[in-house]
Amino acid sequence: MQGWSKFEIPDMVMMDILSKLPVKSLARFRCVCKPWSSSFRTPDFITKHHQNNLTDNNLNLLLKRCHGNTRNDIHYFSALSTEKGGNFSVTENIHLPFFENCWYAPVVSGPCNGLLCLHDAGKAALWNPSTREFKILPQSSVNRPPSIDSTRFGCLGFGFDSVTDDYKVVRFVTNYFNENEDEGLQADWIHQVELYSLKSDSWKEISVPEAHPYGSPLFNNYVNGFYYWQATGNSNYLILSFDMANEKFSTLPLPNFGGSLAQYYLQLLDFNGSLGAIVYPREGTEKSIDLWVMNGSWTRQFSIESVSGVERPLGFWKNGELFLESSNHELVLFDPATRELKNLGIHAYRNTMKLIVYVESLVPINGTSEQEERIIRRQAGDASNRH
């Protein structure tokens, strides 16, 4: 047509446009041309894509759950719709065969830049649910003390070292043995801490802190280069932190919330880039929920009073809404502004729900595809998904 002239979009502008697209679209566009495919793998594009998702608040939801409490009941993940009007319905269910023989598995650490660390006992893996890449971590090469009877793998933390551009996993190990005075053994366990580096794809031993962590995270405990655990030290309850860059431990006090851990649950979390702590009663089905935030010292950010028929909080959503597990062990969404409690119709066995809120990421983990690891994704509504 006359009056039209051919023009080309500069590469920089094109890459800026493409960096705003979802991972699923970028996977298709890899086939358009080799330069595009190569560009999608560069650190600059990966970072820009992730930052765009953070800026636009493009959140995704995975729900880990189980329908029973025996070794025959497999834990799995459900992807939830986040589109407006989608009512957070289940779009697909995801089964991970690598963890099928583990009870209550896998425990989830993260997300960190869109990546998750999954673990149970001595088994651990990294997973990018956006690119569907899965990496089984190698067995630890750390030497164990002599004459031990058993080794148990405990709390684990996962995070990013921005100094070396490396993803790291820190894991606590307890070695048990029978007391034997003839061999000079005075205790019945020895603690170790080991650190995995994705760059080197190997483990090493690091110093054991004086405080010892406990419990499984309900929320994401990684915040801006640090991972946090609840811990005990010198007969006191406190918070243990690990700096992913300098690989050192330090401690923080718990917030002074006016009660005891015998009466209240306290769960750590990333709240808008700061360390937070949610506190709620252990007993009763009418819960008041307090959020504390650490900014040099602990301050109470807000309180939600007397929410009826709920068991525990599971995570925050875009506009301050709070996902909760109801007393009937269903997923509900609570709006603190209107106090509306909306049942989403998704059920699980009690205390097996964990909600993972993450943004899409192209970060590679040097693993293999989900298909190669026999990870199964089934669309919701398939008859094989009803149990």
Rank of each mutant, 00 (worst) to 15 (best):
Leu118Tyr: 04
Pro129Cys: 07
Lys135Tyr: 01
Leu115Phe: 00
Val108Phe: 02
Cys117Gly: 09
Gly154Val: 02
Lys135Ala: 04
Lys135Met: 02
Leu96His: 05
Ile94Met: 09
Ser140Ile: 04
Val108Leu: 08
Val108His: 05
Arg144Pro: 00
Lys135His: 09
Gly110Tyr: 04
Phe99Glu: 05
Phe153Gly: 13
Trp103Val: 12
Leu96Asn: 08
Glu100Ala: 10
Trp127Thr: 05
Ile136Cys: 02
Leu96Trp: 08
Gly122Arg: 15
Ala121Lys: 15
Trp127Lys: 06
Asn101Pro: 00
Ala105Asp: 02
Ser130Gly: 05
Asn128Lys: 10
Pro146Glu: 08
Val142Cys: 14
Ser147Glu: 13
Arg132Leu: 00
Leu115Met: 07
Leu137Ser: 05
Leu156Phe: 01
Leu118Gln: 08
Leu156Ser: 11
Gln139His: 05
Leu156Trp: 01
Ile136Ser: 07
Ser130Pro: 05
Gly154Ala: 09
Pro111Arg: 13
Gly114Cys: 08
Gly157Val: 09
Glu133Phe: 00
Leu96Phe: 14
Glu133Tyr: 01
Phe134Tyr: 11
Asn128His: 07
Asn113Lys: 13
Lys135Ser: 01
Leu116Asp: 03
Lys135Glu: 01
Asn128Gly: 03
Lys135Ile: 02
Leu96Ser: 03
Leu137Pro: 01
Ile136Glu: 04
Leu137Ala: 06
Asn143Leu: 11
Ala125Leu: 08
Phe98Ile: 10
Gly159Glu: 05
Lys123Trp: 00
Pro146Arg: 15
Ser109Trp: 00
Cys117Asp: 03
Pro145Tyr: 02
Trp127Gly: 07
Leu137Glu: 01
Gly122Asn: 15
Phe160Tyr: 15
Ser147Ala: 11
Ser150Ala: 11
Trp127Gln: 11
Arg144Lys: 15
Tyr104Cys: 13
Arg144Glu: 02
Tyr104Gln: 15
Ser147Val: 03
Leu156Met: 13
Asn101Thr: 11
Asp149Glu: 12
Gly159Met: 10
Asp149Lys: 15
Phe134His: 08
Cys117Ile: 11
His119Ala: 11
Pro97Gln: 10
Val108Lys: 11
Pro138Asp: 07
Phe99Trp: 06
Ser140Ala: 07
Pro129Met: 12
Ser147Gln: 14
Tyr104Asp: 13
Cys117Arg: 13
Cys117Leu: 12
Leu156Lys: 15
Phe99Pro: 04
Pro97Asp: 06
Gln139Gly: 11
Ser130Tyr: 03
Asn113Cys: 06
Thr131Asp: 01
Val107Gln: 12
Ser150Gly: 06
Arg152Trp: 02
Leu116Gly: 07
Ile136Val: 14
Gln139Pro: 00
Pro129Gln: 10
Ile148Glu: 00
Pro146Asn: 13
Thr151Gln: 13
Ser109Leu: 03
Cys155Glu: 14
Pro106Asn: 12
Cys102Asp: 06
Ala124Cys: 13
Pro145Cys: 09
Leu126Asp: 03
Val108Asp: 03
Pro106Ser: 09
Arg132Gly: 01
Leu118Arg: 13
